[in-house]
Structures are given as C-alpha cells and as structure tokens.
C-alpha cells in the first residue's frame, strides 16, 4: 500500500486529479446553493441519471471514447430528461415526485441497456465507460482532468458574475422583473450551469451520486451562516474539501470507487454541521435555547 501511496504522490497525473476534484467540488457546492434555494435538489439527481444514455449514444456514434463527444451526448439527454419532467408535470395529473422518479429510472435503465449493448457489440475500445456510473478518478487521463478543471473554473466564474441577479430572481421574481432583470433567461442559465457541472463531474463522481455534491454542501453550509454569499462560498469550500479527501482515499486504496467515497466525506461534514453548526445546529440549541 505504501508503494501505491508514493507512486501517486509523485505523479503529475495525481496532482492534476486532485486539482480537478478540488475545483469540481467547489463548483458543485457553489452552484448547489442555488439548486437548494430553488428547491430543485431531486431534479438535479434526475439530470445526473439522465446523462447516462447520452454517454452511450456518444460512444455509439463514433465508436470511440472521445470525451467531448460523450459529454455533449450526456448534456443533450440530461436536458431532454429535464424537459420531459416538465412536460409530464404540465400535461398529466402526476406530481413532480412521480415525474422525477419515472425519468430517473427509465433514463438510467436505457443507459444501462446502451452500455451493455456496447459491451457486447461495439468494436472500439470501450473500457472505462462503466466508470461513468460510480466514477473512478484513477481512470482519468491528464486531458480529461484538464477539461474538468477548465470547465469548473468557467462555471464558477459565470455563477459569480450572475450572483446578484440569481439571488433576486430566486427570492423575489416579481421584483426582479420590475427591475428589468430577465428572470426566465436567468433560470435557463442556472439550468445550464447545473447540467454543465453534472456532466463534467460524472466521469469522476458518477451519475448515481453526483447530485449529493450539489445537495449536501449547501445544506451543511446553512448550519453555519445566514448570509447568502458566505453560504455559497462556504458550500464551495466544503464541496472542494470532500472532493479532495474522497479522491485521495479512492486513488490510494485499490477498487474503491471515487463517487461514493466523496459522498461519504460530504455526508460526514453534513452530520458535523447538523450537530455542531453555529446556526441552528442541534447542540447549539441545547447550549443556548432561544
């Protein structure tokens, strides 16, 4: 095991992977803040699951593992899944819960069918497609991580630039419209940001659990602050922290998938925040009952 350790520490690839997980975690945490405020936690889970068939289609089109093509496919089916959810809610008596459940499970099922089809029939090199389910940071090559890193930075910058507008558009859409802020445009931008971060993250964290990186950091941050900008920043930091620690464990212990390990770390952070958070933490209520 110590051999494993030193090899990883000295390799440039490992440093890139850690950098990628740090920025990915930060971007997820920050964007997740708005997901939480918009009460779209489970929709983001659906977006992630719906990305899987896109990966399969992207591979089948060119019969090779070309990451940008796979991610483009993932983006398209993810958006399609989101659109279907809205369509179902609008045109049937089913509620959001059932609509999300239908889309999550059917898109994931189609994704599994495509992946097994590729495994049986495709001639190109399809090793590593399965990693899109639970994520495997160790399987990433430099080019992949650079793509993740650069995309995460871009998404964080967009979020920061639009921060105030997002805030007003979510908390008071009518007031925002009065100010001339294009609310529906901003909603669209936010949706693209969520799909974007989900799609670039699936190779590292996997479609099954990446939603946790959007949901749990802002929830944890909520127990420490009431200020939105601080909450978003802290959420980003917590996401980055769990990204780095989880990836580290997963890369140094063989056969440990990255996604679940990252999620375990962020869950531990949530538990600590829930118990000891300075705002609304359970212990704080015991110490100073309001």
């Amino acid at each position: 095991m110590s051999d494993y350790f030193s090899i990883f520490l000295s390799s440039a690839n490992f440093r890139w992977v850690i950098t990628g997980s740090l920025l990915l975690g930060f971007a997820c945490g920050m964007i997740g803040t708005f997901v939480l405020l918009k009460k779209q936690s489970l929709i983001s889970d659906a977006m992630a699951h719906a990305a899987l068939p896109g990966v399969g289609i992207g591979f089948l089109l060119f019969n090779e593992k070309n990451l940008p093509v796979l991610l483009l496919g993932a983006t398209l089916t993810s958006l399609l899944g989101t659109y279907f959810i809205q369509l179902i809610i609008k045109h049937s008596k089913l509620d959001a819960d059932a609509a999300i459940g239908v889309i999550i499970s059917v898109f994931f099922g189609v994704g599994i069918v495509l992946l097994t089809f590729i495994q049986q029939h495709a001639t190109g090199n399809h090793a590593g497609l399965k990693e899109f389910i639970f994520g495997q940071a160790a399987s990433l090559v430099n080019r992949d991580v650079q793509l993740i890193t650069v995309s995460a930075i871009v998404l964080v910058l967009i979020t920061m630039v639009c921060f105030k507008e997002f805030k007003i558009a979510i908390f008071d859409p009518d007031f925002a419209k009065g100010l001339g802020i294009p609310v529906s445009f901003l909603n669209g931008v936010l949706m693209l940001l969520i799909v974007g971060i989900v799609v670039i993250g699936i190779q590292m964290v996997g479609v099954v659990l990446i939603a946790a990186l959007l949901i749990t950091p802002p929830l944890s941050a909520r127990y420490w602050t009431d200020e939105l900008p601080i909450m978003a920043g802290l959420s980003g930091v917590l996401g980055a922290l769990s990204g780095v620690i989880g990836t580290w464990f997963s890369a140094t212990i063989p056969n440990l998938p990255t996604g679940p390990m990252i999620v375990l770390v962020i869950s531990a952070i949530f538990l600590i925040s829930l118990l000891f958070g300075s705002k609304r933490g359970i212990m704080m209520k015991v110490v100073q009952p309001s």
Binding site: L209, A212, I215, L219, P257, G259, P260, M261, V263
Partner: peptide
C-alpha cells in the same frame, strides 16, 4: 421536521446511506 426541505432531506439521506453501502461493498470484494 428540523427545517430541511423534503427534497433535500431525501437527497442527503439516500446518497449518504447508499454511498456507505457501495464503499462497504468494494471492501467485500
């Protein structure tokens, strides 16, 4: 009941327990 949205509470709980299960699974080998 502690004030977390229904959506988010479902998200946190199932991802935590499921992640724990998958990590334990990979140790069973």
């Amino acid at each position: 009941q502690k004030g977390v949205q229904k959506d988010a509470s479902i998200g946190v709980i199932f991802t935590s327990l499921f992640a724990l299960a998958v990590v334990l699974l990979s140790f069973i080998g």
